[in-house]
Simulated assay, not measured.
Amino acid sequence: MNIFHKTQKKETRRLPMTGKVKKGFRYYCMAVLSLTAIFAMSTTAFAAGDPLTVVNNLSDFIFGFIRAIGLILLGFGIVQVGLSLKSHDPSQRANGFLTLAGGIIIVFAKEILTLITG
């Protein structure tokens, strides 16, 4: 019993399109692409009045991102330490504690930098 007929050859043919239809389709595509490019490139950027506020906002965003990465490492370190306690693997336990310590340092990076700089 042959479910898939591998011997059948399918022919593909292009749809008939006259010269005027091709030309119109080209104009339509160019109009859509042009309007998309115009609307995509004409976004208005509103600047804040104080440049120091912009820098502080950017700094808060970057440190928030770094804190999220630190929390992920912290969670991974906890899981790694837990698995090493279950399997009695000292090298995995050491790596888990190092990952845990690194995650804590990364989470509190902003506070550590403010303590250092004053």
Score class of each variant (00 low, 15 high):
residue 52 L to R: 15
residue 43 T to L: 10
residue 114 T to D: 13
residue 7 T to M: 08
residue 104 I to R: 01
residue 42 S to L: 12
residue 63 F to H: 10
residue 39 F to P: 00
residue 51 P to H: 13
residue 53 T to N: 11
residue 24 G to E: 13
residue 14 R to N: 09
residue 17 M to W: 01
residue 41 M to F: 12
residue 102 G to P: 02
residue 92 Q to D: 12
residue 7 T to K: 13
residue 110 K to M: 13
residue 21 V to C: 03
residue 115 L to Q: 09
residue 110 K to P: 08
residue 60 D to V: 01
residue 93 R to K: 15
residue 20 K to Y: 02
residue 38 I to C: 04
residue 90 P to H: 08
residue 80 Q to N: 11
residue 13 R to C: 07
residue 87 S to Q: 13
residue 101 A to W: 02
residue 70 G to L: 04
residue 6 K to L: 12
residue 52 L to V: 13
residue 36 T to Y: 06
residue 80 Q to W: 08
residue 13 R to L: 14
residue 80 Q to V: 08
residue 27 Y to N: 07
residue 94 A to V: 11
residue 33 L to W: 07
residue 77 G to L: 08
residue 118 G to I: 00
residue 59 S to P: 00
residue 56 N to R: 14
residue 105 I to Q: 01
residue 89 D to F: 01
residue 47 A to N: 14
residue 54 V to Y: 04
residue 109 A to Q: 08
residue 46 F to V: 15
residue 74 L to C: 03
residue 85 L to R: 12
residue 47 A to C: 05
residue 55 V to K: 15
residue 7 T to F: 08
residue 97 F to A: 02
residue 116 I to W: 08
residue 74 L to H: 07
residue 82 G to N: 06
residue 40 A to T: 13
residue 48 A to E: 12
residue 89 D to L: 00
residue 79 V to E: 06
residue 77 G to T: 06
residue 19 G to Y: 04
residue 96 G to R: 08
residue 100 L to R: 07
residue 116 I to K: 03
residue 3 I to P: 04
residue 70 G to I: 03
residue 118 G to T: 02
residue 26 R to V: 07
residue 92 Q to A: 15
residue 5 H to W: 02
residue 66 I to D: 04
residue 16 P to D: 03
residue 40 A to R: 06
residue 28 Y to A: 15
residue 23 K to F: 14
